[in-house]
């Protein structure tokens, strides 16, 4: 990000930026930057908190009126609900949906796939409700069932045709994984009377309590056994977060 600012400023475009990783910005020294202490993926702070987002924007834009630089300003104000700023505080959220589980007389992978299929089926009405309410989804290419089919078929027998995407198969796998996780979040976030899980609670749920998390780890392992470099890279880095590997 800082390098982009440097290149643009060299081409006579004034820049200002938000910084999420202070160490990187301090090394690159772009012209103007506001370091914020927010989670990766949330450079403006807290979803739905327009006042906080506005304050971040105003502070970042005001750097354009400074007389000289490079400038790296630190965000120093409290933000968000109490507890959000302490990464060690465990978030409390429990998914209210109890999934049905398949019978025991199947192989481990078959049981996993059957369990994941049940999850997708049981979450679908909540996802549909959320989409109807908000009119917006982060699902990009793969409808939930298509994402599930691609991931589960690959886990069983390797590369298969990806009807929703005609690019490289490794990219199709990644997009399917991203889309099905987006589907899971939007489904649980849309249930009536509850609030969406925070990111830590959602990750804990996906990776430790759902069959999807286990299926994605199985897909990762299969990718790592491939000779195709793109699939190996996808398995190594792009399906399961480093913190969950």
């Amino acid at each position: 990000m800082g390098a982009l600012a440097h290149y643009l400023e060299t081409e006579r475009v004034a820049t200002t930026q938000i910084s999420l990783i202070r160490e990187h910005t301090a090394t690159i020294q772009p012209p103007r930057a506001l370091w914020v202490p927010f989670e990766l993926g949330r450079p403006l702070g807290v979803p739905g908190d327009a006042a906080l987002q506005r304050k971040v924007l105003v502070k970042t834009l005001e750097l354009l009126e400074a007389p000289a630089g490079p400038l790296l300003l630190d965000w120093s104000e409290p933000y968000g609900p109490a507890g959000d700023q302490d990464a060690s505080t465990p978030s409390v959220w429990a998914c209210p949906i109890t999934f049905s589980r398949p019978p025991e007389d199947q192989s481990e992978l078959d049981r996993l796939i059957a369990a994941c299929r049940s999850e997708v089926t049981e979450l679908r009405p909540w996802y549909d409700l959320g989409l109807k309410t908000s009119g917006r989804t982060a699902v990009v290419r793969f409808e939930p069932e298509a994402a599930f089919d691609l991931l589960s078929q690959y886990a069983v027998k390797g590369e298969v045709a990806a009807e929703s995407y005609d690019g490289p198969f490794a990219v199709a796998l990644r997009l399917a994984a991203q889309d099905i996780k987006a589907f899971y979040f939007e489904a649980v976030a849309s249930r009536p009377g509850g609030s969406p899980p925070d990111s830590a609670a959602f990750n804990r749920w996906i990776w430790h309590e759902t069959a999807l998390g286990q299926l994605l780890k199985a897909v990762k392992e299969r990718c790592l056994s491939e000779t195709d470099e793109a699939l190996r890279q996808t398995g190594a880095l792009l399906l399961v977060p480093l913190e969950q590997a």
């Binding site: 993926g41 991203q178 979040f185 899980p197 959602f202």
Partner: peptide, 24 residues
């Protein structure tokens, strides 16, 4: 369609302004 799986996407799912503050 960012490649990385190592950052939060649920904030963007709830409010695009947390990542792309066009409304603000």
């Amino acid at each position: 369609t960012h490649l990385s799986t190592n950052f939060d996407r649920t904030g963007f799912q709830q409010d695009w302004n947390v990542m792309f503050p066009l409304d603000r």
